[in-house]
Structures are given as structure tokens and as C-alpha cells.
């Protein structure tokens, strides 16, 4: 194991990860604030007015990154849950637990801003289209995972039960992603892809990317802060926690 190079497995232990998370938080918090400020400035003052949608399209700069994050965080949560189930590292389950509320929040933001955009564009707050419905199911899945965990007192069982549910729910993510291609829906298709030139102006694309990284950094900060709380709560009987509390006194 220790044949040269840093031992990455060291950070799988909550005791080693706790200070690491504490050191990492500022490294993500600063970009989160700065990028959000830049992104919002670009959203409102730099990005040009869309010739068809007018000013209302600007909510896309929040809606699209939030929707991306909602799916991405679900996958992250499921991967951590799978690690927790298979490798049985305690930290993985804690991370899965820490990510869930942030993911649920981004899902909610994506739905909410989508409603604000839909009202002027489609003339309705909500339509029962495939992408909207599957995103709503994603919100239900997040809530289900958190509710199942909250209902079980034994933490080990709670970890594994909610982890299994998270894994079952992964089926939904590709459905959301491809829903605009599989079904002929009201929600427009993707404007950005890895293989073709984006169908939007360069400045809009940059604004979108800046906002995405801002949201991503925010997700890191909140998850790490939450996981620190979870570690302390679960390891409260451990010696190192007691020592640390004594030091800060």
C-alpha cells in the first residue's frame, strides 16, 4: 500500500478527512462567491438580448446550471452510495448523505426557475412534458432517499437502505437527459454538445459555464460543510473528536 507516493486511502477515514475538508472549504467558497458575482454580472449586463425571447431568457443562466447540477449531484450521490454499499467505507455513506440536500435544492431551483421562464414563453407555469415530469420525479427521489434515511434510527442500516434506493433511482437520470430526444416535447433540446458547435453565441456560452462552475463550487462547499457536521455527530464518541473539542476550549 505505502510504496511511494501519497496514500490516498488515508482520506477514506473520517478522522483524516475532517481537517482536509476544513482546509478545502475556503478553496471552493472563494470561487463560488467570485464566480457567482461574475456570472450574475455577465447574465444581466454583458450577455446580449435574445432576438426571439427578449430579456426573459436570462433566467436560463440559473436554470440550466441548476438542472445540470441536479443530475450530476444525483450521480455523485449514487456513486458514493455504491461505494458505501460495496467497499463499506463509512465516509462514502456520509458523503452521500451530505450531497442529498444540495442536490434536492438544485432540483427545486431548476423546476422553479423553469416555471418562471415557462410563464412568459409557453404561457403556462407548468406543462406535463417528459423532461419536466422526469425532473419532478428526481426531486421525489431525493426526498425519498432523505426520508428513508431519517426514518431509520440505526445509522448503518439507514446508510445502506437509502444507498440502495439512490442506486435504484439512477435509472431516472438518463431518462431526464435524453427525454428531449426520445419524446417530441415542448422543452427544447440541448443547445450545447461536446461534438458540435453550440447553437448560441460565445458570450452566452461563457456566462453559462461561469455560472455552472459557481454552482459546482457551491455544491462542494455545502457538501463539505455538511459532511463535517455529520462526521462530528457520528464520531462524537471517538477519542479524536473529544481531543479536538478540548483543544478548542
Amino acid at each position: 500500500m505505502s510504496s511511494g507516493g501519497p496514500n490516498w486511502f488515508k482520506y477514506a477515514s473520517p478522522m483524516a478527512f475532517y481537517p482536509l475538508a476544513g482546509r478545502l472549504i475556503p478553496w471552493f467558497a472563494v470561487p463560488a462567491v467570485v464566480l457567482t458575482a461574475i456570472g450574475l454580472y455577465m447574465t444581466f449586463f454583458v450577455a446580449p438580448v435574445d432576438y426571439r425571447q427578449g430579456d426573459a431568457y436570462r433566467i436560463m443562466f440559473i436554470h440550466v446550471p441548476a438542472a445540470w447540477m441536479s443530475m450530476w449531484l444525483y450521480i455523485c450521490m449514487a456513486v458514493y452510495a455504491a461505494l458505501g454499499l460495496v467497499v463499506r467505507t463509512r465516509l462514502s455513506s456520509m458523503m452521500a448523505q451530505a450531497i442529498a440536500p444540495t442536490g434536492a435544492m438544485f432540483t427545486f431551483i431548476a423546476l422553479w426557475t423553469g416555471a418562471f421562464w415557462g410563464k412568459p414563453m409557453w404561457g403556462a407555469w407548468w406543462v406535463w412534458d417528459a423532461r419536466l415530469t422526469s425532473e419532478l420525479i428526481l426531486l421525489f427521489l431525493y426526498i425519498g432517499v432523505m426520508a428513508l434515511r431519517a426514518a431509520i434510527d440505526d445509522t448503518r442500516r439507514a446508510d445502506r437502505a437509502s444507498g440502495l434506493l439512490a442506486l435504484v433511482g439512477v435509472v431516472n437520470v438518463p431518462i431526464i437527459y435524453y427525454s428531449v430526444q426520445w419524446w417530441n416535447t415542448l422543452h427544447q433540446g440541448a443547445s450545447i454538445s461536446m461534438t458540435a458547435a453550440p447553437t448560441m453565441s460565445r458570450i452566452m456560452l461563457w456566462t453559462l459555464l461561469v455560472m455552472t462552475f459557481a454552482f459546482w463550487a457551491h455544491a462542494f462547499v455545502t457538501s463539505l460543510m455538511r459532511v463535517r457536521g455529520i462526521i462530528l455527530e457520528r464520531e462524537r464518541h471517538a477519542e479524536w473528536v473529544a481531543e479536538m473539542v478540548d483543544e478548542t476550549k
Binding site: 415530469t133 420525479i137 421525489f140 427521489l141 426526498i143 425519498g144 426520508a147 428513508l148 426514518a151 431509520i152 437502505a161 440502495l164 434506493l165 435504484v168 433511482g169 431518462i175
Partner: peptide, 26 residues
């Protein structure tokens, strides 16, 4: 799956609907 996960959990009856209904939607 939902029934097995909520086995012996308090409030299992309501919880199972929260877990299973989203998966029933398709």
C-alpha cells in the same frame, strides 16, 4: 424493493408510498 427497504421501519406505510410512487410513474 420499497416493501423490503421499509421493513420494520417506523411510519413504514406512508414511507413506502414516498419511495415507490415516483418509481411507479413511468
Amino acid at each position: 424493493i420499497g416493501a423490503a427497504l421499509t421493513l420494520g421501519v417506523r411510519g413504514g406505510g406512508v414511507l413506502v408510498s414516498l419511495l415507490v410512487l415516483p418509481l411507479y410513474i413511468p
